[in-house]
């Protein structure tokens, strides 16, 4: 596609800044509070969290690439509908890929893989970033957000699996006399662990003790 007259050439923030932004300053889970359903629902073990994070990151990357490439071709009125169709296509693909690779993982994630479609993070990035920026920046943005999302899911998954089951990626790490905290695996535990991580991050951002 040729450069349109009047198109603004963006200087200013470097492309790699988009990557860092997604991981820390604009972290999708801890800062923007987007995509809460999978964050809370499938983080009962670290491996579930990892698979879910990677699946979401993949859909995010592919949809950002396609939305960004098509940003001049899609009429403004139907853009949301076309984004949803793009996202749904990739989610269907991911659903079948996970089913083909490991039926066990697919069963433990259940309907939540299909529910990536309505993850507000993906539609949010398509609308707020990919539809306004060029391909390269959109890829960096998707990678940053994807990595940030996966890390956040892992933060929850590792803590919940460690305390709730005494294991780390299915390896027993805690001494045998450790009494598992069953609450961590229950729905309530998910809310508490996420709240504690948010408290910790807010504390770090404020920097130092306060009176």
């Amino acid at each position: 596609m040729s450069t349109k007259p009047g198109e603004i050439i963006v200087t200013g923030p470097k492309d790699t800044d988009e990557f860092i932004k997604g991981v820390w300053a604009q972290n999708p889970v801890f800062v923007q509070v987007l995509g809460m359903c999978p964050t809370l629902a499938v983080t009962n073990t670290a491996s579930n969290a990892l698979v879910m994070g990677l699946a979401t990151a993949f859909v995010l990357l592919m949809s950002n690439v396609l939305v960004s490439s098509l940003r001049h071709a899609v009429p403004k009125q139907v853009r949301i509908a076309s984004y949803v169709a793009i996202i749904a296509t990739f989610v269907t693909a991911v659903d079948y890929i996970i089913q083909a690779v490991s039926l066990e993982v697919h069963k433990s994630l259940g309907a939540y893989v299909s529910l990536i479609v309505v993850n507000c993070l993906i539609l949010g990035r398509a609308e707020a970033f990919a539809s306004k920026n060029n391909l390269k920046r959109s890829i960096y943005d998707a990678l940053g957000m994807g990595v940030g999302f996966t890390l956040a899911l892992l933060c929850l998954g590792v803590v919940r699996e460690l305390l709730g089951n005494g294991t780390f990626f299915n390896l027993s790490v805690l001494p045998g006399n450790f009494q598992p905290w069953v609450i961590m695996l229950l729905p309530g535990g998910a809310f508490f662990v996420l709240a504690l991580w948010m408290l910790l991050i807010n504390r770090l951002k404020q920097g130092g003790p306060r009176d």
Partner: peptide, 22 residues
């Protein structure tokens, strides 16, 4: 408390509600 304002305190309330519903 300052650091718990907004989402964090809502999440804690949600957790307690979730336990109640069990």
């Amino acid at each position: 408390p300052n650091i718990a304002q907004g989402t964090a305190v809502s999440l804690i309330v949600a957790g307690i509600l979730s336990l109640t519903f069990m």
